[in-house]
Design a protein around this nucleic acid. Sequence first.
RNA 1: GGCCCUAUCGUCUAACGGUUAGGACGCCGGCUUUUCAAGCCGUUAAUCCGGGUUCGAUUCCCGGUAGGGUCACCA
Length: 434
Amino acid sequence: MANKVVTRFAPSPTGLLHGGNYRTAVFAYLFAKKNGGEFIVRIEDTDRERSKKEYEENILESLAWLGLPHDKLYRQSEHVKRHEEALKTLIAKDIAYVSEEAQEEGKRSQVIRFRNPKEPLTFIDAIRGPITTDTTDLGDFVIARSETEPVFHFAVVVDDSDEGITHVIRGEDHISNTPRQILIQRALGLTSPVYAHLPLVLDSDRTKLSKRRGAKALTEYRDEGYLPEAILNYLALLGWHPKDNQELFSIGELIKEFDLSRIQKGAGIFDETKLLWFNHEHIKRLSNDEFFGRLAAYTKTPIHSSIIPLLKERAQTLKEAVDAVAAGEYSFLDEDVSYSKELLLQGAKVPEEVVSQHLNKIIESLEALSNFTNDEIKNAIFPYATEVGRGAVLWPMRVALSGKEKSPDPFTLASLLGKEKTIQRLRAALTVLK
RNA sequence: GGCCCUAUCGUCUAACGGUUAGGACGCCGGCUUUUCAAGCCGUUAAUCCGGGUUCGAUUCCCGGUAGGGUCACCA
């Protein structure tokens, strides 16, 4: 109990967060859960001008959607009393002091600075090992705008301590902030948490992922029909790797396998193509009912439950599935088909009398069937098709059933349509030829 | 520019001194229910450079180069 692991994700609600940001949350969450610990979300809203409620809501919504529930939620702004107390303590001890500043545009004339001991400082990063810097370079840095307005470094240190954070898992861009935070911890007599600085997630142009350069917010991926489990899976493997070559993970498996020691040091590029592959894999892993439910939650477009298996196989995202349905790719199921004679003959490459013969033969074979399953239909038709020429039999059959140039294979179509409708359409094809 | 971090196929990565440098995505090619997808099979492709240490370096050390981060009264 005394050594219970507590991690935190501490975003500032000053904008929408992208995949790289959430990757940090994923790692902090997995590490906490792996160790039976707690995952805390702390909204860092000390910048009162730029913090917005809508961003906070978006962040919380995204975290919930991804499947990263927090054990506790804090807002930094609610802790101002504690910050003020700690600040006064340091001032009383003359470790911090009120500094008169040269008047500048948009700046205060008075701020609170930290008396820097100016010495070399080494901390052990759980991913990178010892990191040494000389704090002299920092000078007497500012820790608060006033007694009631602490700056990031100060508030973070006090909060991490108050909230019992044992492991600070954050982006590499915070490495250079760590020494000054440790300095404040020491001045306050606090123990330092373990630091683990994650490699950055880069855009395809090798620069830090940023909203400004078009990095998508997580909610955009949701709107584009990505599955949260696919994004989670992809994010977990961006900068971390299991012992073996397993790639597809459920969240439970990730928690079980996750290990700080297998985190990468070098930055990684966010690859949307691979994410798409993960998404399709996770779609395929969904049961038909589950997939149907996800589609229903995603769109108002009515979707026939019988085509769910086809959609699962063919669509990489929910949006793709919906778009295909909306574009009429499966309309042959409930609408009558119509097509030209040319299309019916196009792929057959034999005279139309021969096609008629084949169609008659198909009808005859199918009429004898009792179950009308995909396999039964295939067994009835395929040997014949192979014997006389597959294209000559299968192409017209497929067009007769779908009315389209592109469609699923003829056996699947027939089983979906049912015996009666299938035979009716094959007869209609004979009429077209006449 | 100062300080810090990093460096294996195009991309994500495995190999914690000895491997034909492995896997996945993508690309390309082939097969398939002569369509579109999916699926299956296969091909292509990498240790940044230079010095050490060692019988032996992707792996350890040093230097260079390159990339990134950070130098706010933003977090």
